[in-house]
């Protein structure tokens, strides 16, 4: 593949992710509204929101550090775009020869949106945003540990393959990892981390989108706010998709595609359901929750995976 094709592909895939991501945020809002006896917004609502924000004035607060304030959202967007590009490429072309990125790259890039939010929040020089940023930081520290452990489970199962395409091929030929106890536990961990990475209830202490004030984003307006919203929407698609790749063998091809989409939708439904049936968790409790329960589950999963590998028992 030459560079030009790659660049074009990158933009097409990023745009596609953004569109589908925005649609999924709509599903989320619609489900919430139906639970509350309301009709909810029309399907194009997230698009209208983003386009509208692009046309608004961008205000940089006096006390804010201007460069950091404006660059932060772009860092987040760049991170999530690259991740989605890598993941989609792996899904569509698992055996592709060109090296674009492996598991390690994805893990790093997925931290970028959270970092961007933290920088943005700190740069806006608003006490509320600072509180939000410090919470986001704590939360990121909290969920990264089990998240990495979850990936370790995948690595043990795959025999150390770091290539996403390799993981997909291996699962498509040798059965999905989730069809084992350790894989199932890893999936639970993955869903909870997804919830936190998406900043969804119960782990939305940092942003508190439903809580009206918006925390970190309180000082953002216009285009940078739109970029943050877009980043969030793309994460909505990308993070669950990453889990699908890691544990459920990707989307597949031909007749496998509807099934693959179903996998993603299943994960999304889990996320939306958790969001709608739980009140917000205090940040300390979120940290304790991730370092305690979730990490414990992840460690058990790792142990089982190692045991399964040693003894050659597939279902462990």
């Amino acid at each position: 593949m030459n560079i030009l094709v790659l660049v074009v592909l990158f933009f097409v895939i990023s745009a596609g992710t953004a569109v589908v991501g925005l649609l999924t945020t709509w599903i989320d809002r619609k489900v919430t509204a139906r639970v509350q006896y309301r009709l909810g917004p029309p399907w194009f609502q997230p698009f209208a929101d983003v386009v509208k924000l692009l046309g608004k004035e961008t205000i940089v607060p006096h006390a804010a550090s201007k460069a950091a304030f404006l660059i932060s959202p772009l860092i987040g967007l760049a991170g999530v775009s690259l991740v989605s590009f890598i993941i989609w490429l792996a899904i569509f072309d698992p055996t592709g020869s060109g090296f674009i990125g492996d598991l390690i790259v994805v893990i790093y890039l997925l931290i970028l949106p959270a970092l961007a939010m933290i920088f943005g929040g700190l740069a806006s020089a608003n006490p509320l945003a600072s509180v939000g940023a410090s919470r986001e930081m704590k939360l990121a520290l909290a969920y990264e540990l089990p998240f990495i452990l979850m990936i370790v489970v995948v690595l043990i199962k795959s025999g150390g393959t770091l290539s996403l395409g390799g993981l997909i091929s291996a699962q498509q030929s040798g059965g999905v990892y989730v069809a084992s106890i350790s894989g199932l536990l890893a999936l639970v961990v993955a869903i909870l981390c997804t919830q936190a990475k998406l900043g969804q209830v119960p782990f939305d202490a940092a942003e508190a989108e439903t809580e009206l004030t918006g925390g970190i984003l309180i000082e953002y307006s216009g285009t940078p706010l739109a970029v943050f919203k877009l980043t969030r929407a793309m994460l909505y698609l990308t993070v669950p998709m990453f889990t699908v790749v890691l544990l459920c063998g990707g989307i597949g091809s031909g007749w496998g595609i509807p099934l693959g989409i179903l996998k993603y939708v299943g994960l999304l439904v889990a996320v939306v359901l958790i969001r709608n049936t739980n009140p917000r968790l205090r940040i300390e409790h979120a940290v304790k929750f991730f370092w305690g329960h979730v990490t414990a589950i992840a460690i058990i999963a790792v142990a089982l995976a190692v045991l399964g590998n040693r003894l050659g028992i597939g279902w462990l």
């Binding site: 006490p127 509180v131 508190a208 009206l212 009140p279 917000r280 968790l281």
Partner: peptide, 22 residues
Amino acid sequence: NEPIMTGSDLVRLSQEKTARLR
């Protein structure tokens, strides 16, 4: 003084306590 917490934080704390108890 500069705000360290705000009203919304208080509401949040309140909601979180419910969550904890749940």
